[in-house]
């Protein structure tokens, strides 16, 4: 077994004029990975994906697939295929012609093209639609055609640009299931871009969180969620509350009141508190309920602390709605806050 990773980005960056869209970054993806590039819109994640696909020429750095440098190759020569956010399906061709487009370009025999087209359509469960025109399909079906059209090329890496953004919630969950199933069935390597952390966690085994062109953290979903490396990651991933405080000689005192032991540098810090870890506590911090939203499985409660900060609480207890009424004064506490140095200001 060689240890050459499937995809290796080294010092890859992109500037548009004076604006840095992607800061130099390194990323390694192994064969079989399902990797999510997660970040808010405009963070450079789509630019990164399009550099891997070959549509954007990087300003510096290199892209290697299985140890071979492909930085200089055009998109048509790379062993990657992409599912575009708007799908980019060919409206003048049928579903089968769309899916077979890449193979037809390779001058494969008619038999092989039609056999593999059927195969790909079966994989996305669209075999009944092969002779339809694209505009006669629903959004979810178009998504599947785009997926089949890319997968039929047997790419070393399948790239997906916000693949589910255009679908409604229910369809999105269905397609997430579908993507997971397909990934397991063909054992390929997928990289997808998303701004939705729940989507990233539901699908990926490797998450790269990006912000303002910088990769803030790369790790498993659990690592990113439970031990965020930076304030941004903590804030962006999950509904966390960030409470300001100060560390002096191994002890942190929060503006809101609580203090606890925490090793590290003296100075301003933020405590990250997960909403599911917050609960009533008789000797806890006084708080006022400012908002309560019912989500079915749980109730999301916003609390105002004495420091004027907001603390989010999530409760799935049956009597939660009765207990957390807007305006109610309570005492709350939490377990396992995580502390991150905040720097001055």
């Amino acid at each position: 077994m060689t240890s050459t990773p499937l995809l290796k980005l080294s010092g890859l960056s992109k500037s548009f004029g004076a604006a840095r869209a992607v800061e130099p970054l390194d990323l390694t993806v192994q064969a079989g990975d399902f990797c999510a590039i997660l970040g808010p819109s405009g963070c450079g994640k789509s630019t990164l994906l399009r550099m891997i696909a070959g549509f954007i020429e990087p300003s510096s750095g290199s892209i290697a697939i299985e140890g071979r440098d492909i930085t200089a190759l055009g998109p048509e020569k790379r062993p990657t295929n992409m599912v575009f956010q708007s799908y980019g399906l060919f409206p003048h061709l049928t579903v089968a012609e769309n899916v077979g487009f890449g193979l037809a370009l390779q001058k494969k025999s008619k038999d092989e093209v039609s056999r593999r087209t059927d195969e790909a359509l079966r994989l996305v469960r669209l075999e009944a639609f092969s002779q339809r025109m694209i505009d006669r399909l629903s959004g979810g079906q178009q998504q599947r055609v785009a997926l089949a059209r890319a997968l039929i090329m047997r790419p070393k890496i399948l790239l997906l640009d916000e693949p589910l953004a255009a679908l409604d919630l229910k369809l999105r969950h269905q397609m997430q299931e579908e993507l997971r199933r397909i990934h397991q069935e063909i054992g390929g390597t997928f990289i997808f871009v998303t701004h939705d952390q729940s989507e990233a966690f539901a699908l990926a085994n490797l998450v790269a969180v990006m912000n303002q062109g910088r990769v803030e953290q790369i790790g498993s979903p659990a690592e990113v969620y439970l031990s965020p490396a930076t304030l941004f990651v903590a804030d962006f991933v999950g509904e966390t509350s960030l409470l300001a405080g100060e560390r002096r000689q191994g002890r942190v005192t929060l503006k809101a009141g609580p203090h606890f032991a925490s090793a590290g540098r003296d100075g301003p810090v933020r405590a990250i508190v997960r909403p599911e870890r917050v609960g009533l506590k008789s000797d806890g911090v006084p708080a006022v309920v400012t908002d309560a939203v019912f989500f079915g499985a749980s109730l999301k409660v916003s609390l105002r602390l004495p420091s004027d900060e907001t603390l989010i609480l999530r409760s799935s207890e049956a009597d939660a709605a009765a207990r957390y009424r807007i305006g109610e004064r309570l005492a709350v506490g939490w377990e396992d806050q995580q502390v991150i140095d905040a720097g001055p200001g």
Binding site: A53, G54, F55, G74, P75, E76, T80, N81, M82, F84, Q85, S86, Y87, G88, L89, F90, P91, F101, G102, L105, Q106, A146, R149, A150, M153
Partner: peptide, 11 residues
């Protein structure tokens, strides 16, 4: 995106 897709598929 249709042109990009064609390029991506080897055109």
């Amino acid at each position: 995106a249709t042109v990009d897709a064609a390029r991506d598929l080897g055109a």
